[in-house]
């Protein structure tokens, strides 16, 4: 078989999608867009910044006896508990975000 003949034959072989292919695709895309989760990176950054801010404020209160001219005498143990809880909450939230992200991609 000659090259040109084969080319003609293969060009005849192109198959067409079903009639509803395009509509189904556009519906799937619309549905997925509605379900779309907020971007992991932005959520991650927000959580990280809030946690860091919280830790900084608490650390500042903890290690400075005078803040804004007001004497503070805060017991250290509860403050450590609050810092730990804030960090654990942050880590937990980030892990959940990661799981949701994986689910939405899958």
């Amino acid at each position: 078989m000659k090259e040109e003949q084969l080319k003609k034959i293969i060009q005849k072989s192109a198959i067409e999608t079903s009639d509803d292919f395009l509509n189904n695709l556009m519906h799937s895309i619309e549905a997925k867009q509605k379900m779309r989760q907020p971007s992991f990176w932005w959520s991650f950054k927000t959580v990280l910044m809030i946690c860091m801010l919280l830790v900084m404020v608490i650390s500042f209160l903890l290690f400075k006896d005078v803040t804004f001219g007001v004497a503070t005498n805060i017991p250290k143990t509860p403050v450590f508990v609050i810092i730990t809880a804030a960090l654990l909450f942050g880590i937990n939230h980030i892990m959940r975000l990661n799981e949701n992200q994986k689910k939405s991609i899958g």
């Binding site: 999608t17 292919f21 395009l22 799937s28 895309i29």
Partner: peptide
């Protein structure tokens, strides 16, 4: 879509499966 379906069908040999794959591809 048609050329893409033809390529997918070359590999998968089944038009229905190739069409499902093509939906995922375009998404």
């Amino acid at each position: 879509k048609d050329v893409s379906l033809s390529l997918a069908q070359s590999i998968l040999k089944d038009v229905a499966i190739a069409e499902d794959v093509l939906q995922d591809v375009f998404i």
